[in-house]
């Protein structure tokens, strides 16, 4: 039994951390999100493909690395730490859906190499979670509207979920941007009137929910870990009343609680990923729990990090806000907390 990463996994983590730190420093993210309407840099995206991160879990035949959920969690954690702008998580989930549906080697190969961006269009309304699906399908055509489609303007294809199955549609799309408080993640409303190919039954999407939950939780883990580390450094140097603010017990105890949340999220995320890789019967419960817990923990830890920085924490310049914002985005998508709570109850047989 061993919780620690294997040598290969550690290598993957270290190289991802180094690569992402060099490629996506916060200053660069600040620049890209303000000056590039796409919200990410396609050249940097292509380099993610070269590094093999875009085909991490895909089969070798399509240029993938055939790795598992644990490795995906490792890279997602690093993506969260660096608060990388762009659709990394969305594309990983769309690729998993395509792979689960079978076939479609060409599109998968394009995803793995970074040539194609494909995401999933699933949200049926801007607000309500369970609005009736507004998509109609007939005679190979798909019509209707989806909300919060990730990076739809850049996508070559979208996988559209309906109660009757998942459909693939190809660009161009009629896109209306839905700018949110998180500029590192772009969403749009898409009005479909497309030729569409039914590629999988609806239960294929349902079957991927635990992976989506664990994956989003892994990214949340990275987001909160980095915000926590930045804060820990800051409280050791910032002086007030003639001493470092980190010597005040009021802050120490909250930092201890934050550490507990970060480390507990780490246990939950990697256990869930491991359960998924090993078809463990606890996988669904572990994944839903990890996501529900990570959402709360990240909001709390990222919030504390701004609070403990004082005024400078509230500046755009410092960049801490990106972590809080990403935490909120990840919390509300990929199965929001209430959804995960229901899933956890169901998986626990309660």
């Amino acid at each position: 039994m061993r919780f620690e990463l294997s040598d290969d996994q550690r290598l993957l983590r270290d190289s991802a951390r180094d690569f992402l730190a060099a490629e996506f420093p916060l200053e660069e993210t600040q620049r890209v999100v303000e000056h590039d309407p796409r919200g990410f840099d396609p050249a940097a995206w292509a380099r993610l493909g070269e590094m093999g991160y875009l085909g991490l879990t895909l089969p070798a035949e399509v240029g993938g690395q055939q790795l598992g959920a644990v490795e995906l969690a490792i890279v997602l954690e690093e993506m969260g730490r660096a608060c990388v702008p762009g659709p990394y998580l969305d594309v990983a989930l769309a690729a998993a859906l395509l792979a689960a549906a079978g076939g479609r080697e060409r599109l998968l190969a394009e995803i793995a190499s970074g040539k194609a961006i494909v995401t999933i269009a699933r949200q049926d309304a801007a607000f309500a979670g369970e609005a009736p699906c507004g998509i109609e399908t007939a005679n190979g055509k798909l019509r209707g509207r989806k909300y919060f489609v990730p990076f739809a303007a850049e996508a070559q294809a979208l996988l559209v979920t309906t109660p009757g199955g998942v459909y693939r549609t190809d660009a161009p799309f009629a896109v209306t941007p839905l700018p949110t408080l998180d500029p590192t993640q772009r969403f749009a409303r898409v009005d479909f009137d497309h030729v569409a190919e039914r590629m999988a039954a609806a239960d294929v999407v349902a079957g991927l929910e635990p992976l989506a939950a664990a994956a989003a939780a892994a990214m949340l883990l990275g987001v909160m870990s980095r915000a926590f580390e930045i804060t820990l450094d800051y409280v050791k140097t910032r002086q007030a009343f003639g001493r470092p603010i980190g010597s005040f017990q009021a802050l120490q105890h909250r930092l201890a609680d934050a550490l507990l949340r970060v480390e507990s999220t780490r246990s939950a995320v990697y256990r869930a990923a491991w359960c998924l890789d090993n078809a463990d019967p606890d996988a669904a419960l572990a994944a839903a729990s990890a996501k529900a817990y990570a959402g709360d923990a990240a909001r709390l830890v990222c919030g504390e990090s701004i609070q403990m920085h004082g005024g400078i924490g509230f500046t755009w310049e410092l960049g801490l806000h990106f972590f809080l914002k990403r935490a909120k985005t990840l919390e509300s998508h990929y199965g929001s907390t209430e959804v995960q709570l229901e899933r956890a109850l169901a998986a626990a047989g309660l």
Binding site: T265, L285, S289, A290, L341, A344, L345, A348
Partner: peptide, 8 residues
Amino acid sequence: RLVVENEV
């Protein structure tokens, strides 16, 4: 919420 915390 209790189930989730217990799993964690």
